[in-house]
Design a binder for these strands. Structure first.
Lengths: 215, 215
DNA sequence: TGTACATCAGTGAACGCGCGTTCACTGATGTAC
DNA sequence: TGTACATCAGTGAACGCGCGTTCACTGATGTAC
């Protein structure tokens, strides 16, 4: 079998197809920011992506598949955030302030994906909402594993860690909603949201410390 | 002017009109539970309400006006909950457990209205979402006034009370989401949600106590 | 009480529109020799 | 390198459908005398 030294031709046709696929995804994300994913049509997406409606079918079976792909991409962004923040030494020394910074920063930078999660979590296309809620459940468990390794938390019961994780994720989604509602170029509001995120995480941590010490 | 002793005829036509109007509202609420309000059509609502599409216009100018009326009705339910719970002596002695009980009970009894608020808060019809978020902001301030009168809270700064109120409302919406997702006839899950609501409110209160005592 | 007229909630036909989807096609890219 | 054929992303016409909205109407309810 002549597997050695494959030409790796980077076929132009395939590259172009990939570009169109991304144009469709970007168009759908853009349009759903204004009206919600469930309310946009295949023809609108095609128009925004600069293709004819029938070309859509070369990339996705229907709008539902497109929606589920957007869910995947959005959670990939979310998971990348966690991976990156684990590399940040700040997180170990001051998890609360560092988390608030990272949260607001990343959400702002990836407004579209976080907005998609927050917006379509309820009341969107049924399969898309279901997928998002399933992914959020998974994410809570993943974050619990990360949290459990942190100092001050390592000796908590796994049930407590799971609950803190749930509160953090809920807090994250709520703050994502606020950042998304925030108009651009209002750094004052941004600082307010960051401060709110800090206070809420502090509340959660303080509350838990008390809880564990006196019950 | 012969204003004395008006017949008060309880006109049959008017009563029938009111019944139809309520049938439309009920139909829209029912249908939007499954697909979200923005995705249901005027003709679907008319069909579900048992009238011909054109009769819809005798009651609402368009679907947007119907949606805004549902927002009003949903918040009327929410405010009634607060008014009723203020009469409950339990609230003054054990605000946390009482609130959790009331919250889960009322939400379960008025699933449709709370579901409407939670679902349409984001990503629904733009004007409906805006109206809901505006009403939620008002509600946070109203609840702050109620909370400020409670023992142990009466000497807090108004800023702190406002923030606790915001956390309570956020908690309420989150728990409403959970109750709504909950399948019927699962009293075990219900108790779990109630316990979760209790723990979270306790966290908020404990966190604040600490905060105020050592900072 | 009875009659003649007014009101108006609900009807049914009709309209133009954007939708999702099918199908046969085109022409640039890719492959074999 | 040049030629002949295959592939397949994107095209454009066509379809049937449910939609929101208009309009003139009907007939039960309400009112005046």
């Amino acid at each position: 079998m002549t597997v050695i030294s494959e030409p790796v031709p980077t076929p132009m046709r395939q590259a172009q197809k990939e570009r169109t696929r991304e144009a469709i995804l970007a168009a759908a994300l853009r349009l759903s920011q204004e009206q919600g994913f469930a309310q946009i049509s295949l023809r609108q997406v095609a128009r925004e992506a600069g293709i004819v409606p029938t070309a859509f079918y070369r990339h996705f079976a229907d709008m539902e598949q497109l929606g589920l792909t957007l869910v995947e991409h959005s959670f990939a962004t979310l998971r990348k955030m966690i991976r990156d923040s684990q590399r940040d030494p700040q997180v170990f020394t001051n998890i609360i302030d560092a988390s608030a910074d990272i949260l607001v920063g990343v959400v702002k930078e990836h407004k579209a994906h976080f907005g998609f999660i927050a917006r379509e979590r309820f009341g969107g296309q049924v399969s898309v909402s279901k997928a998002i809620r399933h992914e959020l459940d998974l994410f809570v468990s993943e974050l619990a594993v990360v949290l459990a390794r942190l100092p001050n938390i390592e000796n908590w019961s796994s049930e407590d860690v799971q609950m803190v994780s749930r509160l953090f994720v809920r807090n994250m989604v709520s703050n994502a909603e606020e950042v998304i509602e925030m108009p651009d170029n209002r750094p004052d509001l941004e600082e307010e949201i960051k401060e709110g995120a800090r206070r809420q995480m502090r509340l959660i941590v303080l509350g838990f410390r008390d809880w564990n010490s006196d019950s």
